[in-house]
């Protein structure tokens, strides 16, 4: 089966999320082939989950630190993308033979990620289930079937949106397990913050701590080969369509930069 492989490279925060939504809309509207897109970020960006409470976020501190803040279409809690982190998104549905249910879909995603890590000599495995409830405002601390581990520590995670029965998966490969996120969130008290930070240090690992020196290009090649092998598909390296680009630019400006969507009340 032919898939699109799109390398967006270093991209503006708002445009990255807008591009994913544009791809999802275009897949449903114009009968496009399924897509794997990879990207990184031009600026560190804090991304809230679709329904996350804005009270979790210290907007003033984000601004002071020069961190972009926006909200994604997919579920879950906050995530901080650093400049070196590697992002990926997948758009597909049962129209192209993919599962219709979340658990089966995430197992399929996990298989491709494990296969991609194998390409760079890393033996990874996936989570065995889901956490049932969010307790803390940090996405990486919750386990989901699409999450990937190395020696009991989380290395990659993803969240999902479902629209008209089409899945959008937005994922992150952690390059450097920075703790900067903790300065950007509101915790009810210092003790809780310390407890969550301890859990974070125990649970999360960046790729740089496993194998130093891996570049964006290395990961791009690993994804290109790993996904094809895992799913028995053929990629065509291509660009977004003009309709997707136009919609992405419109969504970036009108939605993903909009304080009403993000929840930054002081700008509304």
């Amino acid at each position: 089966m032919k898939w699109r492989f799109i390398d967006s490279g270093v991209t503006d925060s708002y445009l990255n999320l807008a591009t994913d939504e544009a791809m999802l809309e275009a897949y449903n509207e114009y009968n496009l082939p399924p897509t794997l897109r990879i990207y990184s970020w031009s600026k560190p960006t804090l991304i809230l989950g679709r329904s996350q409470k804005e009270l979790d976020i210290n907007f003033t501190e984000c601004r002071n630190e020069g961190i972009d803040v926006t909200r994604r279409l997919t579920g879950g809690e906050a995530i901080l993308f650093g400049r070196n982190d590697f992002g990926f998104s997948v758009v597909v549905s049962s129209r192209h033979g993919f599962p219709t249910k979340l658990d089966s879909f995430l197992k399929v995603i996990a298989r491709a990620l494990i296969s991609s890590f194998k390409e760079i000599g890393i033996r990874a495995y996936s989570a065995s289930g889901f956490d049932k409830r969010y307790q803390w405002p940090i996405c990486l601390l919750f386990d989901g079937l699409g999450d990937i581990y190395w020696r009991s520590r989380k290395l990659a995670s993803n969240a999902v949106a479902l629209k008209r029965s089409t899945f959008l998966s937005q994922g992150l490969i952690i390059k450097d397990s920075s703790e900067d996120l903790f300065g950007l969130l509101n915790f009810p008290n210092l003790d809780l913050k310390k407890k969550v930070l301890k859990e974070y240090r125990k649970k999360i690992i960046g790729l740089d701590a496993i194998r130093e020196g891996l570049t964006y290009q290395d990961l791009k090649e690993a994804f290109f080969l790993g996904f094809q092998k895992a799913w028995d598909i053929e990629f065509s390296a291509t660009e977004l369509t003009q309709k997707e680009l136009s919609l992405a630019q419109k969504l970036a400006k009108e939605k993903y930069k909009n304080p009403l969507w993000i929840g930054d009340k002081r700008l509304q």
């Binding site: 679709r50 579920g75 879950g76 979340l102 889901f130 049932k132 969010y134 919750f142």
Partner: peptide, 30 residues
């Protein structure tokens, strides 16, 4: 695990328009 964005009583909704959002762990669905 969550239901959000239900419209206000009195408002108008269009066919195929969004009437809300449901969420499970790490997933949202219009």
């Amino acid at each position: 695990i969550g239901v959000y964005e239900l419209p206000e009583p009195g408002s108008q909704i269009e066919p195929s328009g969004s009437l809300g959002l449901v969420e499970s762990t790490k997933a949202s669905s219009d």
